[in-house]
């Protein structure tokens, strides 16, 4: 019972921290807005300056919600990949999903410039990038799923995912070699990742797909726990291994693929959040880990985004750099403190 109690305490603390980070994230930014005004505009009350309302409701609020979706979604897909592949180094992108998305975007941005003509006009559209990234990751996913159907060995799937990733990366290199500097820079900026690009419509679509991915993850909790024993034990416990593996791969791909399509590749979060959660809770039980990863992912992403904004300055740092700068020390510190990696 004591375990249950202490878990409850950590969960209440995490929920509190999430709310705090959420409000803090919205309060901070290049424009200084008084705390009262932020709360009033969030709740729909009158605020002295109309621009404040616009900044909070049209820019900061969607960005904060995006941060929550990205952090929790990538964290959960990383958790599932680490359990499925029995590998603490696995993350949401081991199946080549980011590389697929990058390839899609690279083809649109750099390929179009090579062909020239009517295509160049399309590049500026945000939706073109999103659709290209989705298509890219979807094609890689399809290839991985076809392989997963044929191959019995989970480790083989992991290697094949990595190979697909390498192939996509190679094609991107070839494309960039032939591309003009301007397009190269545009592709480079996409690769840095960004949370602040989504409007409410885009956010709504992202949220719907995210919910489907999370729902599939929750359905996989029992199978994930059985996979902790190994696949043969899972089978002897009545788990349909092939089907469960299929659902886990789909859920991961939906989450990681869609998030990458909308925000660009966000590194590190998917790998680090599950480790942080395991160390803090000292458990491998996915019934505890999954909700905890959702919370931790959201909190850390909100903190990273707040830092990336460099409050009160006009600069915004690339989010990809901040996630690693903030996340790595946390993981190292936890490992040093506990002296033992929990996996």
């Amino acid at each position: 019972m004591s375990i249950l109690k202490s878990n409850k305490a950590i969960f209440s603390f995490l929920i509190g921290a999430l709310v705090l980070c959420f409000v803090l994230n919205i309060c901070l930014g290049s424009v200084i807005i008084p705390f009262k005004a932020v709360i009033s505009s969030l709740l729909g009350y009158k605020v002295e300056q109309q621009t404040w309302v616009t900044i909070v409701n049209q820019y900061r609020l969607p960005k904060a919600i995006t941060a929550i979706i990205v952090g929790s979604g990538l964290g959960v897909s990383g958790l599932m990949m680490q359990t499925l592949f029995k590998n603490p180094l696995a993350g949401p992108f081991v199946l080549g999903i980011t590389s697929g998305a990058s390839l899609g975007v690279a083809i649109v941005i750099m390929g179009a410039s090579l062909i020239g003509g009517i295509f160049t006009g399309l590049i500026t559209s945000k939706w073109t990038i999103i659709i290209a990234a989705s298509l890219g990751s979807f094609l890689v996913l399809l290839a991985v799923l076809l392989v997963a159907k044929k191959v019995q060995d989970t480790m083989a799937i992991l290697i094949i995912g990595l190979m697909f990733g390498s192939i996509s990366a190679a094609v991107v290199s070839v494309l960039s070699y032939f591309s003009p500097a301007e397009q190269l820079q545009q592709y480079f900026f996409w690769g840095l990742g960004s949370l602040g690009n989504l409007n409410w419509t885009e956010l709504f679509i992202l949220f719907i797909i995210y919910s489907v991915g999370i729902a599939l993850s929750i359905l996989s909790i029992k199978a994930l726990n059985c996979f902790l024993l190994g696949e043969n034990y899972a089978k002897s416990l009545g788990i349909n291994v092939k089907q469960s593996r299929f659902i886990i791969i789909i859920a991961t791909s939906i989450l990681a693929g869609t998030i990458t399509a909308f925000t660009g590749p966000i590194a590190f979060i998917g790998l680090a959040i599950p480790h942080i959660t395991r160390q803090v809770f000292g458990s491998s039980n996915h019934k505890i880990l999954l909700p905890a990863v959702l919370l931790f992912g959201a909190i850390i992403m909100l903190i990273c985004d707040s830092i990336a904004q460099l409050p009160t300055s006009n600069y915004t740092l690339p989010i990809n750099a901040i996630t690693a700068l903030v996340g790595s020390p946390i993981v190292i510190w936890l490992l040093l403190k506990k002296q033992k990696m929990i996996f």
């Binding site: 359990t83 029995k86 929750i218 359905l219 909790i221 029992k222 726990n225 059985c226 996979f227 902790l228 024993l229 190994g230 043969n232 034990y233 416990l237 009545g238 788990i239 395991r278 458990s283 491998s284 039980n285 019934k287 929990i342 996996f343």
Partner: peptide, 27 residues
């Protein structure tokens, strides 16, 4: 075959034996 996760507590491990009888989330 070796356990995929050696971090499981003994109680958790033995409890996993009840999986065929538990509900969809394994309670």
């Amino acid at each position: 075959e070796k356990l995929a996760s050696k971090n499981l507590k003994v109680l958790e491990l033995v409890a996993l034996g009840r999986q065929p009888y538990t509900n969809w989330v394994g309670n």
